[in-house]
Amino acid sequence: MIVLRLLLLVFLQAFLLRDVSPLGEWTRPEWTLWALLLIPPQASSFLKLGLGFAMGLALDIALGSYGQHMVAGTVLGGLLPAIHRLFAPREGYEVSDHPILRDMGSSWLVGLTFTAALAYHLTLMLVSNWYWHLIPGALLPSLSSAAFTTLCCLVLHLMVYAPDRRKSST
């Protein structure tokens, strides 16, 4: 399921949502991150790392970006266990916890999504610019893009896991 979701989002980002960027480089969303963030926090660290790498590889193949997303995805996959630990509740994650609004709450979701998006965009910015003198100019666009990616992920989240479903299900 996770892999299917990942492939679907890669396809969407590469072929349909590629040009959804209202303010140009200031708002360049990474839709596929949402699939990675839906990995349960209790999952194996190797799974997170492997899926991060696979997501980057798939994006590079689909977008023709020659390794930039692979590096950023691997960095995010490597950091994701630590990010999960950082945002873990005091008593730890329950076995049945899913990384969704209903289970984890809004602050957890927003904080985790923004942190992950920030790590991804900063890495992407570094490997896109490479030269030190170009990095200060690219820092603010990557920050705003991380915020925009968070917004997009939340929108997707609300579309798929709408709060009223919880009510209807309960």
């Binding site: 790392l49 390794g67 590096v71 691997t74 960095v75 490597g78 490997v127 490479w130 030269y131």
Partner: peptide, 29 residues
């Protein structure tokens, strides 16, 4: 240290792909 080693290995693969294909990255490197 399996996770760290796996991370390093995947990063090495990613960076080698990047450096092999991205001219700017290669020249900066």
């Amino acid at each position: 240290n399996a996770f760290t080693l796996a991370f390093i290995a995947l990063m090495a693969v990613s960076l080698s792909v990047l450096l092999r294909n991205d001219g700017a990255a290669r020249s900066s490197w």
